[in-house]
Write a protein that binds this DNA or RNA. Structure first.
Lengths: 210, 210
DNA sequence: GTCTATAGATTGATAGAC
DNA sequence: GTCTATCAATCTATAGAC
């Protein structure tokens, strides 16, 4: 059966397993087994395991980045039209909100966004480089808008604060929906809206710190 | 040559490689090759690759945790003696400062602290579980002190804010000393004192956000 | 304790029939 | 495009000489 969905099935399976076990700890046999396709299909459709990883990132990251870029452009243009500086909160929201919201955007999106949360600090160059290549332009764009929003902050300080914010977001993504052992009396909400609101509160406060 | 330092050489080499390539992407051959010891020495001294990972964490984490625990106890006792609540900044500092300072505490410590920065969100269960087992008690201790410091904050909210802070710290650790491509005009400082000060500023602001 | 040698399993990738 | 079969490399782990 030469189903046109074979590539998609492989991508879904790889996304699922990469997010849960990591790239190097996931074999092509595990991927094709879960996808119920033949082992050789991966190399036929993608060429190599590494190219498959690239494709897993690309499938979701291209549309997600389009939304984030659009949001940032709107923030910039609106501020310019109204003759004011872009706000810190609206700038960070333009980047963070679509990222966390993406989690419930479709089947497997949750796996992907977990993968994203981990990719930034992945020990493996293969994973991290593929990810950084896709995310760097948006990072610079966000950096530039925050430069305008916080002109009194030195570039160095802004750089680090933005790194802190990104670290907080990535870790929040990794933790969301997991069930680690929790302190007494804690039953943490993890619906997207609440988490986004809490995270934005936190990073805006840190970013605006005098 | 039956040098008593063989175990140490293996630990150093494993620490170096785990931090740079990840656990599953590092072979025992690479470890023993770099350590200039025989392949079989790993299984003789540690029993298995996984037990070696455990030992890598244990060697550094036990003394580091002793410092962090001591610091947190001092914060708690000092506040109690002075009849006041523990402060947010001193509580977070008691945890964060020794962690970042550990980076320059000796040969290889930098590698280890990178490993720590990544362990929290490591895709691999083996790595993450070993780490969480060592860090969980201190996390609860810090959580409890911050409960006293911020009594008006709901446990859920505090839990997430602490997660954000830990995510920021972990990412900062991973980024420190790396040379990623940077925005125009940014030459980020990464000496321990400056980074600690900036990070504390950021997370205290986020934690105290009204 | 250190070494050689190798077992035993698993890996990514490919050739070639259909 | 999909399959079987397999190659060549790699891996962790261990047995046994020294």
């Amino acid at each position: 059966m030469s189903l046109p969905e074979t590539k998609e099935r492989i991508l879904d399976s790889a996304e699922y397993l990469f997010a849960r076990k990591g790239f190097h700890n996931t074999s092509l046999r595990a991927i094709t087994g879960r996808a119920a396709v033949n082992l050789a299909a991966v190399n036929y459709h993608f060429g190599s395991k590494e190219a498959l990883l690239e494709a897993v990132f690309e499938r979701r990251l291209v549309p997600l980045n389009k939304v984030r870029r659009k949001n940032l452009e709107v923030v910039r243009e609106t501020a310019r039209r109204e003759g004011r500086l872009p706000g810190v909160e609206e700038s960070l929201r333009a980047f963070i909100e679509p990222t966390l919201a993406f989690r419930k955007s479709g089947t497997g999106a949750e796996d992907f966004i977990t993968l994203v949360g981990r990719a930034m600090s992945d020990p493996d160059d293969t994973v991290r480089n593929v990810f950084i290549r896709h995310i760097a332009p948006l990072f610079y764009m966000l950096f530039d808008i925050l430069r305008e929003a916080l002109p009194e902050l030195s570039p160095d300080m802004l750089f680090w604060r933005l790194q802190f914010a990104i670290g907080a977001m990535g870790h929040a993504i990794c933790m969301a929906g997991k069930s680690y052992s929790l302190p007494e009396g804690v039953t943490p909400v993890s619906d997207v809206e609440s988490l986004t609101a809490m995270l934005l509160d936190f990073v805006v406060a840190g970013m605006e710190r005098a």
